[in-house]
């Protein structure tokens, strides 16, 4: 008898995402894709936030070694990439806030935004303003790194947002950088009725920051969060057909490094406990571009060759059988 424990919970899904289309494996569902992404394997969801404010597109410019002071601090933060008020369906004329925002985009201020290096300087929501600055090792105020800015943008709730943009490549006579303040709202990313992603996102945009090629990250990301799709460790395949045979197998508890380069018997050794020790025995970059198909699928945490046969369902509960007979 199988459990009634559900695996899909519509209450926790955006519109229409609970639907299971016939013929599709469950691995086509968004519940099967890892959500936390740095940068991710199938979607880099952080790209939603580059258009969090209707009409504007940002890049979150970060740096690799945040433990070090940046040489040129002004390069980092949320950089305005473009003003795209003409092709943003959320800025339709029936929305009074959109009309006001469009008026700014079409004003001399809006034209100023289209030239120079503009970054988000402050964010405001519900009467609170957060300035996007950090401190370097000397305690000096420097622009916040793009990833930290992203985290604060990600923290916004749907609803009104005010933002101040600062032009960093221009200093006015008073020694200050020009600023422009806009009032808008945090975009609704998923349509609450259709369940589709907002069409302002262009094909390719949600995956644009993933690895190129994808195999590079399959190999070289210090992932630590992809194990459910890309295992770190797996139990070795053994030729057992029954649970009893499995328990008696010498290799039943042999836990392998999944990414090992040596796929033969000589590679069947216990996975070490640090990346330093296991790295030299793993597939390399470039090598994995060709050999990714050799990586094994793992079912019930154990590698398989090509097919998986699920266990037989247990015999029905006798009480249920009796009911059926009645």
């Amino acid at each position: 008898m199988m459990s009634e424990q559900p695996k899909i919970f519509p209450r926790n899904l955006t519109a229409r995402l609970a639907y299971q289309a016939a013929g599709n494996p469950v691995s086509s569902r968004l519940e099967d894709e890892v959500g936390n992404c740095f940068p991710g394997l199938g979607i880099d969801i952080r790209n939603l936030d580059r258009r969090f404010f209707p009409g504007l597109v940002f890049n979150f410019a970060g740096r690799e070694h945040r433990e070090l002071d940046p040489e040129i601090p002004n390069l980092y933060g949320a950089r305005l990439v473009s003003v795209e008020d003409e092709c943003d369906a959320d800025l339709h004329q029936s929305n009074p806030m959109a009309i006001a925002l469009l008026a700014v985009f079409h004003s001399p201020q809006g034209r100023e935004l289209r030239q120079g290096e503009w970054f988000i300087d402050t964010l405001e929501q519900a009467g609170k303003t957060i300035a996007l600055y950090d401190r370097n090792s000397k305690g000096e105020r420097i622009p916040m790194d793009g990833m930290a800015v992203w985290r604060i943008v990600r923290s916004l709730s749907p609803g009104h947002v005010g933002l101040t943009l600062m032009r960093r490549d221009l200093t006015e006579a008073d020694g200050q950088h020009p600023t422009i303040t806009l009032n808008g709202w945090r975009r609704q990313f998923v349509d609450p009725k259709t369940g589709t992603l907002n069409e302002v996102y262009q094909p390719g945009e949600l995956v644009q920051s993933l690895c190129s090629p994808w195999q590079h990250d399959m190999r070289d990301c210090a992932c630590m969060y992809w194990a459910s799709n890309r295992p770190d460790i797996v139990f070795a395949e053994v030729p057992a057909k029954t649970e009893e045979e499995l328990l008696e197998s010498e290799d039943a508890n042999l836990r392998l490094d999944w990414l090992r380069s040596d796929r033969e018997a000589t590679g069947r050794v216990f996975a070490p406990n640090s990346y330093r020790k296991l790295r030299q025995y793993q597939m390399d970059n470039h090598e994995i571009n060709k050999r990714w198909t050799e990586l094994n699928f793992a079912l019930e945490s154990r590698e398989i060759s090509e097919t998986y046969t699920p266990p037989e369902r247990d015999a029905q509960d006798p009480d249920e059988t009796d009911q059926d007979l009645n």
Partner: peptide, 10 residues
């Protein structure tokens, strides 16, 4: 590669 193991943060 592990189709019966689900992410807890999907």
């Amino acid at each position: 590669y592990a189709p019966d193991r689900r992410p807890f943060f999907s």
